[in-house]
Design a protein around this nucleic acid. Sequence first.
DNA 1: ACCATCTAATCC
DNA 2: GGATTAGATGGT
Length: 211
Amino acid sequence: MSSSKVDDQMELISHFYPHIYAQLAQEQVSLGEKMEPRRRRKKKKSEGEVVMRKRKLLSEEQVNLLERSFGDEHKLEMERKAKLASELGLDPHQVAVWFQNRRARWKNKKIEEEYSKLKTQHETTIIEKYRLETEVLKMKEQLCEAEMEIQKLLLERKSDISSNNSPISSIFSMEQQHFDLGEFGMEGKLMDDNMFFVADNQSTYITLWDN
DNA sequence: ACCATCTAATCC
DNA sequence: GGATTAGATGGT
């Protein structure tokens, strides 16, 4: 039975984010799935008897052949196991054990690769986030400056209106076209061909556009 | 088969 | 001598 995608994700999470994994595992328990903790192997401990597990290292040639075989196919069918064992002069069980350990090492390597990939992605994302935040701050600053400039212009204009000999006053004395921009909750007045006076409850803008 | 774990061997 | 690696074991 091959593991599902969800299992793979859980496995990655358990490797790199044990706290999150613990939470998720707990959630699964609360959802009704029983998660029996794997029982720890009992240590063999007989009185006086020393279990000498002599581990003999495989020769370079043996490892080379095993590696080549593993490169071809990670799984080990019975037939291939027997063939390899006789070629290597090893117990078929030893070959099976070697493949099992090799698969475990391969998997760990993959997990570590995935981890460093995600780490790099995360780092570049963080950098991009800071870049964008800086940009937002700059743009807010620009907006603030622009609004101040508008206010300044409006004040200048108001003082121009109040003075009689101002050329701009002639515009205001003209009959003005009136626009209802109800959709936007504000009113607009056409001042001339390229000037539009807009007022709402909060603020007043003058919009200029090029023809 | 897969996994966690043990442990001899090896590395630094 | 502690850390790492790689056969090996036993549980699921």
